[in-house]
Design a protein around this nucleic acid. Structure first.
Lengths: 335, 335
DNA sequence: TTTTTTTATGGTAACCTTACCACACTGTTC
DNA sequence: GAACAGTGTGGTAAGGTTACCATAAAAAAA
């Protein structure tokens, strides 16, 4: 590929002047400008970002570490981040960590070697990892993890309030014995959704009954298992708030397999706001996370912080939206 | 961040020797090795891939240009590519083109400026773009596009045979008046699936009836529209082969809205093999594309070609798999 | 012993670009 | 007509690393 020297030679001019043309800095004569631009076109010259990066120590590249791009939520998030990045002149390197510590660490190393300007971490992140990134002086932002021992850039949904809205909605629809299929123990989002569930019950004066809370792992099959356990109880629930849509779909399967009607016999509401939920019958009510917005805000905050490193690191909490469809509205079944 | 010079100084040794240690090339004394490794650890030194790239003109980075990471198919594809890339020491920059020529061109420029070692193009690619990449001497591979005017690296599913299998299956199940909801006109995959549909009909001695072919755009809503048109015909079909699962879901909605039973009144089969299809009732039969495999093979081929540029450019065609669930099997409805 | 080979290390140019300084010319101001 | 500001251009170091050549001591072969 052509270099700046080739351009300079073809234009019969020094590399300094060509550089000045490229960066629109300093004085350049009208005539010279034309000659240089012509040469650039003729050679199809593109300045090497590598060489530029050597000097500026900037690569205009962001790293995005997420558990698995295949999981619902992440494609939309990645898209939002890439959209903002592209507009601001950044590229995005995507890394799938599978929540595996070793893989995460090796990606940290890699991204550091590649001199990315910043890293966005989605999914569960440990305090240790946050500390490491901080120590190494890497600009980063976490999504959906709450870090309270130091100020860091972070964006997350208000999971507590989302759960609160969902459960309150069920109560308003007349459901009283409301179960919860929760996410994995290690997940702070799962903990927060449980917390919102408790708060809603408490506000309505309904006693919290731990036997109505079943553990799941956010996968569809664990929705099956958890719902089965709930339905064999001597006093089964009349509604269930499920910590994500995927498990909710699994739960719906079991409910209809047992000949129970949604929402008449059992009301159900999920969390996430997947398109999937509007395809099944009855359509699944859910709490929609503002995923695209999370992504755009995250990317904007990180880029801003890269350009202005002294700026205070802050958190942004976004409100989810209750999406009432058919699975939770008594008297509207089957439409 | 620490540089090789810092390491050399701390170890009391020259940069050449440190470089030799890093690259395990040439002679290095046991003692020296230890000193260097100690210094590296103490300084948490990581060689700059940028500086290395300056010399080797390699960045160990691949570009992945796809229409939209949110579309089904692409997350899995991206995951497969990233998995292989990671194993072979490459990173992946993901670019969403929205099938917009200008955006694509600007990504070409960008990736070239970043000196990526190769580009994977997924989604429709024009002959012009292929020619441009070839002219610029960029290593690239196309997925799901057939290029016949020059040898290029390419991987794609056998869409014709996939469609053939699907329609033949419907015929075997006793359906005779089989409609097709096809993909957009500009799409070669859509054309191929239509071709397979025709071949299957022809082989079974069923006359092709163009009024039974409705245009769609691969989105769920166009499945609604197309199915509506088919059902208001004076002689409506008793089965429909839909060119992708998303439109098939839309079609299923309409069918059940009209009080018709799947698969008894109407059989339906999709294309893609999305998990989504196994969540709805009845479960959607489909033709599963070996998406992950496409991704791994694509990444492997491209990396091989980067390492060995003289090697002949060839195409790989992968066979899809018929996934028979409930929507296309007469006498098994409702289970 | 002398010559050759092996082992071990260091110095420097090169990769491509930009930052910075130096120089020269034109025109303006005192 | 001397000093100065504005315009236009070129040379060179620097950024971090590796490739390549040079040097030298130690070991092996003659």
């Amino acid at each position: 590929m052509a270099t700046i020297k080739d351009v300079a030679k073809l234009a019969g001019i020094s590399v300094s002047t060509v550089s000045r043309v490229l960066n629109k800095s300093g004085y350049v004569n009208e005539e010279t400008l034309k000659k240089v631009n012509l040469a650039i076109k003729q050679l199809n010259y593109k300045p090497s970002q590598i060489a530029r990066g050597m000097i500026s120590r900037k690569t205009n590249t962001l790293g995005l570490i997420l558990p698995d791009i295949r999981n619902v939520f992440f494609p939309e998030l990645a898209r939002a981040i890439e959209d903002v990045a592209q507009k601001q002149g950044y590229s995005v390197i995507v890394c799938n960590s599978d929540n595996d510590r070793e893989k995460e660490e090796s990606y940290f190393q890699l991204l550091q070697e590649k001199y990315v300007d910043g890293i966005i971490l989605a999914g569960e992140v440990t305090d240790n990892q946050v500390q490491t990134l901080k120590d190494r002086g890497i600009a980063f932002l976490v999504i959906d993890t709450i870090v309270d021992f130091m100020p860091v850039l972070s964006v997350h949904t208000d999971h507590i309030n989302g759960a609160f809205l969902a459960v309150t909605h069920l109560i308003e629809q007349g459901y009283r014995r409301i179960a919860h299929i929760r996410g994995p123990a290690a997940s702070s989002t799962a903990e927060n959704r449980l917390e919102g569930y408790k708060q809603a019950l408490s506000k309505a004066g309904i006693a919290y009954d731990s036997s109505l809370v079943q553990m799941g792992d956010y996968q569809i099959e664990s929705g099956h298992d958890a719902m089965n356990k709930l339905l064999v109880m001597s006093n089964p629930p009349d509604a269930v708030f499920v910590a994500n849509d995927l498990m909710a779909l699994g739960a719906m399967d079991i409910i209809s397999d047992r000949g129970l009607k949604i929402p008449d016999d059992i009301g159900i509401i999920g969390f996430d706001g997947l398109q999937l939920g509007s395809v099944v019958k009855p359509k699944l009510s859910t709490v929609a996370q503002p995923i695209y917005e999370i992504g755009t805000i995250a990317a904007e905050m990180l880029i801003e912080s890269i350009r202005n490193p002294e700026k205070e690191k802050n958190s942004v909490i976004l409100q989810p939206k209750l999406v009432i469809r058919d699975s939770s509205t008594r008297g509207k079944a089957g439409d």
